[in-house]
Structure formats: structure tokens, C-alpha cells
Design a protein around this nucleic acid. Structure first.
Length: 813
DNA sequence: GTAGGGTTAG
């Protein structure tokens, strides 16, 4: 997890600050000159139009008016262009008319209404007007913008038929189109078939690879371009390659490309500087980025690149310095700046600064942009103000699926699951993020069967299943201990070509470990290309669950050798492994090393591990000393660990001491009371047992019933102790009787001391034979073929796969 | 005329 620096600098955003409704920066207006070439805004254009109307508007002027509108690229100018276009109603196929159709298609596209551009093209065909080599690049670029795959392919067919299949301009737009649709094979095919390629052809293909997440391909194509020496790369090519380096997070490669650029004399324009700064930031080379940032002229886009990257890196103080700099230069933070800044305050939970930004956004009418309202909702949600967030949402007039998802996730974060569930069902549109959010919430709340059920629904609704989805599914499989399902999910990830990044890989390592398959767990771990401290920790945890402390220690050592620094979570995992395997000395050494070599102050969970480690090994006095010398107050988990140790080693005096500490701290924690009552029962102190049980009853407490699950043919069967509601209970009972007979025959005597109830011997024996594990095991035996391994999963000790060990069953069941 | 920069939710 990235370190989050608290934002301490306050944000000074006025009230003296200038406010404006203008979102887009325009050059200062010039005096109307009466000539279209010098037009800088729509008002001037309309003035000239009014003059021309008096003298008679010619077709030539109309064309010029429309093309001028295209350069403004605003809705206002588009409406004006439509007016002019309709005034002329160009029907005939003569050249000036075609020019007007082309200009209008382009105008729609640059105003961001690509659907209309495509419609106009189709209308033109219906009227029998034949498109020319200028029409195609416009309409295909419109198809690329909105990924209109079938319309674009149709245009491809038409242009070939009409004989434009050799025109580099037309074919370049096709490369771009196929790349935008994510079909790089087709883009490549167009590129390979070109008789003549220019710099735009190369650049379009390079950019396409970078865009569909094949940055490696983009870079090697660039080196190929240089080797071929057909055409020289220009600043656009360089920008594409640099952004590919950013995606690869390869700063060395970035430097190489930069060096080539300086050698070849490609002009270092503002776009290119911005791309370079972005690349350095994305590679984590903050100092290098800062150097370049301060070197030349700063514009808003460049400042925004720095601000948003700082926020992404969790460095929340730096952006505020940049905002100060922007203000000092007399510039104003724009909507993109605010987007990043507010998401920073959302991360740091700084409600006051967030509110101030909200005010600034309203004064500047930035809230017309849906993304900025979304981030404001997110900020209020993360600052624990769900009511305010909901109000902002209610007032939004341009809600998108992202807005709904933001509110949905925010309600879950604030613990309002009822409203969240209602919203999920009421949402007008749900995408894969909505479903992933729901799945994540179910995992958090331990509704694992529901996760799998919802996942099946998601699949059948045809939504995109990605690595985030599969992380939830993997967790669910792990906690259910459903190995068959786990294997299926893993195969599904491979089959669907879902990219397995560090986080999904880590989830799989953990999943297999919890399903009791440490071999597969390690196999996944060994195949991971990159491993961060969480991945290593999952592997250590896998060995801890397996009870193989030696291996856990080896992996821990290997992690340090590979240069990954252990964090406090990794130490907790390795200490747990030591305690499960009785590696007292190793554990003690690690506990010291954590503080001395890594400067990590032990958290209470580490003390918990140590108490457990010492207690299990029978070093009860040492455990007590550790608790008394802890720098913090012991919690119920610490006392619980000591209590459990006392039970194993029959130390009733210390148990009494621990029990008092535990019950005082956590009068509501039922597990502790059950443990205490079981200790009294072991010592035969039935009066004390009755007292504790009465106390529990008075509080109306019921322990979460221990259950055992078994997966047969992908279906999970769950058994609780003494519960005979399973459909095949008769069959199961017969199997249990048979097993008991066989065991008695070979001389097994049930350990009745483990039944901690004051009942007669026969009843004790019966209760013992109806433990949830035994029910599950008997069911496993009757429903699988001989020789198949049977895995029983317990809910109370997650990750523990039990063997059939008579007499060692946890009597809590 | 065709290609490139900052952008919210899990």
C-alpha cells in the first residue's frame, strides 16, 4: 500500500478569487476584422454572417463558415453550422456541394457528436451522393471515436470498392479506427498491405498498440521504424512511444527514447514535455519529473499532470504547492485540477478542504461536468458524510453509471448495506464495476456462497468479467474451501485470458492455501512474474496454514534476499507460522529483528502471535511476562491466546487470571466465555461451568455454531453439530455407525473428557459421533468414489482442512 | 484532411 502523506497545507481558493463560467480557455478576442480567417469566437462569426446575408451569402462563404465552426469545436458553433448547412440544402453531387457535406461531417465529429456525423454520411449515400477521398477519413474517424465497429467496417468495404484502397490518408484513418476498436490484428493487416506508408501510418499503429495495452509491441515497432529508415518519427510519434514507456513503467527505456529524441532533433513541444513528465511520474521518478517540470514554460495541462500523478502516488501535500504556484502566476485551477485535488482530499479524509473545493466548483460552474460531481460525491462518502453525498447526487442532472456506482460504493463503505442493496436493484444501468462492488461487499461481510451465486448471475448477464471480479471469486472459493470451484476459477481466468496481475496472483495463492492445496498455491506463487510484499506474505501465510513453519521461514528469507522489505503484515504471517509449528526460538529472533533491523514497532497482533507462540510451547510464565510488559493494554485476543494455552497445558490458576482479564475487556465476546466454560469443564468444576453458561444465557448470547463443509460435485454441503436435517441423514448415520464399530474393533476408545457437558457416558459417546466434522466426513465417504481425497472445511478456523482425527476434535463444536 | 497530452466509480 502506498504511503499516504497527510495534507497539512491549507488551500486558499478565494473568496477574492475570480470566478467565471468559462471552462475552456480561449485566446483573447480580437477586434472583428470582417474576415473569416480571423474569427476567434462564435459571436464574431454571427456578426460576419449578418453582414454577408445582406450582400448575399454565396456557397463558397457558407463552406468557409462551416469549416471555421469546426475549429471552434463547441456545441454553439455546431448549431450555427447546422443552420448554414440547412440554408443551402446541398442535394446535388457537384463538387462544392460534396465539400459542404464533408465539412459538416467533420464539424459534427469535432463537436463530439460522432453519431450524427455517421448518420449524415449515411444520409449522403441515400441521396446518391458519392463520397470522395476526403469523406472517408472524417467518417471513419467518427466511427473510431465511438467505436462504431459495424459502421466502420462497412465504410472500409465501400472505400475499397470505390478504389480508395491505396490512399495513405484513407488507410491511416482505418488503422486508427481498428486500433480504437481494439482489433490490432486488422489494424496491422491494413498497415502491412499499404503500398506507401507515411509517418502517420507508423504513428497510428504504434499508438494503437500502446492504447490496447501492448506497450511492448509499440516500443519494438518504434525501433523497427527507425531501423527501416523509411520515414522519420516526429513529435507525435515520440509522444506515443513515451506514453508506452509510461505504461511499461520502464524509466530506463524512457531515458533511451528521450536520448534518441534529443539526437534526432525532434521538436520538444509542450505536448511532448507533458508526456515525458507523465512518464517519469508513472515510473515513480518524481525527481526527474520535477526537474523537467520546472525547466520550461508551465501550462495548465502540465500542472495537472503533476497534480494528478502526485495524488495517485498518495503524495497529497505536493499538489497544494502547485496550486499555490498556479494562483501566483494569475492562472486559475481548472476542472481537471479540481478533479485531482478533490480526489486527494477524499483519500486523506480532509472534509474541510473538500468542502472548500466544492464551493469553488459551484462558483465556477464546473459541476456541469459529471466527473467532477462524481468525485465530490466520493469525497463526502469517504469523509463519512453519506447524507451530504446523497444530496449532491440527488441534485445532479447528468448522472452516469459512474455516479450510481460512486453512491453505491459509498453507502457500503459507510455501512448502510440495506440502502446499498436497494440502490443496486434500483440502478437504471449496471456495469461490471457495479457488480464487482457488490461482490467485494459480500466478501467483506463473509457471504461467500452469495458471492458465487451472484458471480453466476453476472456471467449469464454477459457483463465483462475482469481480474477484480475474479479476486472476489477467488476469495470466496478460499473461504469456502471449495477446491473444485477454486480450480475451476483458476482455469476460467486462463481460458478467458484475464490478465493475472500481482493482486489476482496473490488472491490465487491465498485461495489454494485456504482450500488445503499448498502445492497449487506454491505453483501459482512461483509462476508470478512480479512479487510484492503482499504476494510474499500470502505464500508465507500458505505455509503457515499448512503448518509448515520451516518452509514459511525459508520463503521469508528468500523474500529478503530478493530485495523486498518485509512489512508489519509479513512479520505477523511469519510469526503465526512459527507459533503453529512450535518454532519458539525462530519466532523470538524474528520478533527482535523486526524492531532492531527493520524499525517496525510491534503492533498488538504481533504480541498476540508471541503470546500464542510461547503459550502453545508451554512457556506460560514467559507469555504472562510478555503481556505484563507490553507497551499497550492487552486486548481480548491476547487474553484469549493465553487462555487457550492454559487449557492445552492444564494451568488452571493462570487460566483464572486470563479469564478475568478477558471477560472484563470483552463481556460480549462469546467465544471467550465458551473457552472459559470449557476450561472449567475440563477441571470438572461444573458449578463454574453453570455460572458462565447462565451468564451467557442472560445476555441472550449464542455462539456462532461451528460448522463443517464439504464440496461434492461443485455443491457445498454444510453440517453443524448434532444437526440431522441433511436429506441423506439416514445414509450418513449408517456410515457413522459402521466407522465407530470398526474403530472400536481396532481398539479405539473415545475420549469422553472432551465432551464438556454434564451428561452420562452413553450420551457423551453419541454427541461425540455427531460432531459436524464427522457428519461431513461420513457424507464424503458415501458420496465419493473410494480412494478420492475428502476435504472438510471448518468455519471457525478458516483455512484449516481437517483430517479424521478421533478424540482431537475441538470440543467447542 | 489521417496520428499525440491532464479526467471520476470496484
Amino acid at each position: 500500500m502506498a504511503a499516504t502523506t497527510a495534507a497539512t497545507t491549507t488551500l486558499h481558493l478565494s473568496p477574492s478569487f475570480p470566478t467565471s463560467n468559462c471552462e475552456k480557455e480561449h485566446p483573447p478576442p480580437k477586434t472583428p476584422s470582417g474576415s473569416l480567417e480571423f474569427c476567434t469566437n462564435i459571436q464574431e462569426l454571427e456578426q460576419i454572417h449578418a453582414q454577408k446575408i445582406k450582400t448575399g451569402l454565396t456557397r463558397g462563404t457558407a463552406i468557409k463558415l462551416i469549416t471555421t465552426c469546426t475549429t471552434f469545436a463547441t456545441k454553439e458553433s455546431l448549431n450555427y453550422a447546422i443552420k448554414v448547412f440547412e440554408l443551402f440544402q446541398p442535394e446535388e453531387a457537384e463538387d462544392p456541394s460534396l465539400f459542404m457535406w464533408n465539412s459538416m461531417i467533420r464539424c459534427y465529429n469535432s463537436a463530439g457528436i460522432s453519431e450524427e456525423a455517421i448518420l449524415l454520411y449515411q444520409k449522403m449515400l441515400v441521396k446518391g451522393i458519392r463520397p470522395d477521398r476526403f469523406t472517408f477519413p472524417f467518417v471513419i474517424s467518427a466511427c473510431a471515436k465511438i467505436a462504431a465497429a459495424s459502421e466502420g467496417s462497412q465504410a472500409h468495404g465501400s472505400l475499397i470498392k470505390m478504389g480508395f484502397g491505396f490512399d495513405p490518408f484513407v488507410l491511416n484513418s482505418l488503422i486508427h479506427f481498428y486500433a480504437e476498436c481494439g482489433d490490432m490484428d486488422l489494424a496491422r493487416k491494413v498497415f502491412d498491405g499499404m503500398p506507401e506508408r507515411n509517418v502517420v501510418s507508423w504513428t497510428s499503429l504504434i499508438c494503437g498498440y500502446a492504447h490496447v495495452d501492448c506497450p511492448q509491441e509499440a516500443v519494438s515497432l518504434f525501433w523497427e521504424m527507425i531501423r527501416m529508415d523509411e520515414v522519420q518519427p516526429n513529435s507525435v510519434t515520440m509522444a506515443c512511444v513515451v506514453s508506452a514507456c509510461a505504461r511499461l513503467q520502464d524509466v530506463q527505456l524512457g531515458e533511451q527514447v528521450y536520448a534518441y529524441m534529443c539526437r534526432s532533433g525532434v521538436e520538444l513541444n509542450s505536448v511532448l514535455v507533458n508526456t515525458l513528465v507523465d512518464m517519469y511520474m508513472k515510473c515513480g521518478a518524481v525527481e526527474r519529473a520535477k526537474q523537467l517540470f520546472h525547466q520550461g514554460e508551465k501550462n495548465m495541462v502540465l500542472c495537472n499532470t503533476m497534480v494528478s500523478n502526485y495524488v495517485r502516488l498518495g503524495l497529497l501535500k505536493e499538489p497544494l504547492n502547485i496550486v499555490d504556484e498556479i494562483l501566483q502566476k494569475g492562472l486559475r485551477p481548472d476542472r481537471v485540477t479540481m478533479l485531482a485535488i478533490i480526489s486527494g482530499f477524499a483519500r486523506s479524509g480532509d472534509l474541510n478542504s473538500g468542502r472548500e473545493c466544492h464551493g469553488y466548483v459551484l462558483r465556477n460552474a464546473f459541476d456541469g461536468w459529471d466527473a467532477i460531481s462524481n468525485v465530490i460525491i466520493d469525497m463526502y462518502m469517504k469523509c463519512g458524510k453519506p447524507e451530504t453525498a446523497s444530496r449532491v447526487f440527488a441534485l445532479m442532472f447528468n448522472k452516469t453509471v459512474v455516479s450510481w456506482n460512486t453512491v453505491f460504493a459509498g453507502l457500503i463503505r459507510n455501512g448502510d448495506l440495506d440502502s446499498a442493496w436497494g440502490l443496486f436493484n434500483a440502478m437504471p444501468e449496471r456495469n461490471h464495476v457495479s457488480w464487482n462492488t457488490m461482490l467485494g461487499a459480500l466478501v467483506q461481510d463473509s457471504w461467500f456462497e452469495e458471492v458465487l451465486a451472484l458471480f453466476r448471475k453476472m456471467q449469464s448477464s454477459g457483463l465483462e468479467v475482469d481480474r477484480v471480479t475474479m479476486m472476489s471469486v477467488a476469495s470466496a472459493c478460499g473461504y469456502l474451501g471449495a477446491l473444485d470451484l477454486a480450480k475451476w476459477s483458476h482455469a476460467y481466468i486462463d481460458r478467458s485470458r484475464i490478465p493475472c496481475d500481482i493482486r489476482l496472483g496473490t488472491a490465487l495463492v491465498d485461495m489454494y492455501a485456504r482450500c488445503g492445496d499448498p502445492t497449487s498455491s506454491m505453483q501459482v506463487f512461483r509462476r508470478m512474474r512480479e512479487k510484492d510484499v503482499s504476494a510474499w506474505t500470502a505464500a508465507i501465510g500458505a505455509m503457515a496454514m499448512e503448518g509448515n513453519g520451516k518452509w514459511a521461514l525459508e520463503i521469508f528469507a528468500e523474500m529478503i534476499d530478493s530485495g523486498v522489505r518485509p512489512d508489519s503484515v509479513a512479520f505477523a504471517a511469519v510469526l503465526t507460522a512459527c507459533s503453529h509449528s512450535g518454532l519458539v526460538e525462530d519466532g523470538q529472533q524474528l520478533f527482535i529483528s523486526m524492531q532492531h533491523d527493520y524499525n517496525i514497532a510491534p503492533h498488538i497482533v504481533h504480541y498476540g502471535c508471541m503470546v500464542d507462540l510461547l503459550g502453545r510451547a508451554g512457556l506460560l510464565e514467559e507469555a504472562r511476562m510478555l503481556i505484563e510488559n507490553m507497551p499497550m493494554e492487552p486486548n481480548d485476543i491476547i487474553w484469549g491466546a493465553l487462555l487457550a494455552a492454559c487449557r492445552i497445558h492444564n494451568n488452571f490458576e493462570l487460566a483464572d487470571y486470563a479469564a478475568k482479564g478477558a471477560m472484563e475487556l470483552a463481556p460480549d465476546r462469546i467465544g471467550i466465555h465458551v473457552l472459559v466454560s470449557n476450561i472449567y469443564a475440563s477441571a470438572g468444576k461444573w458449578a463454574d461451568v453453570a455460572r458462565v453458561r447462565l451468564h451467557l444465557k442472560e445476555r441472550g448470547a449464542r455462539k456462532l455454531p461451528g460448522s463443517s463443509s464439504i464440496e461434492v460435485n461443485g455443491v457445498i454441503h454444510e453440517f453443524t453439530s448434532g444437526n440431522e436435517s441433511h436429506l441423506q441423514i439416514d445414509h450418513i448415520a449408517r456410515m457413522l455407525d459402521e466407522i465407530c464399530k470398526k474403530l472400536k474393533h481396532v481398539g479405539h476408545v473415545p475420549d469422553l473428557a472432551n465432551v464438556l457437558l454434564d451428561v452420562d457416558e452413553e450420551e457423551k459417546e453419541h454427541l461425540l459421533s455427531r460432531h459436524s466434522e464427522k457428519l461431513a466426513m461420513a457424507f464424503g465417504l458415501i458420496s465419493t468414489s473410494p480412494g478420492a481425497s475428502i476435504r472438510v472445511i471448518k468455519n471457525l478456523r478458516k483455512g484449516c482442512v481437517l483430517a479424521w482425527i478421533i478424540g482431537e476434535l475441538d470440543a467447542i463444536n
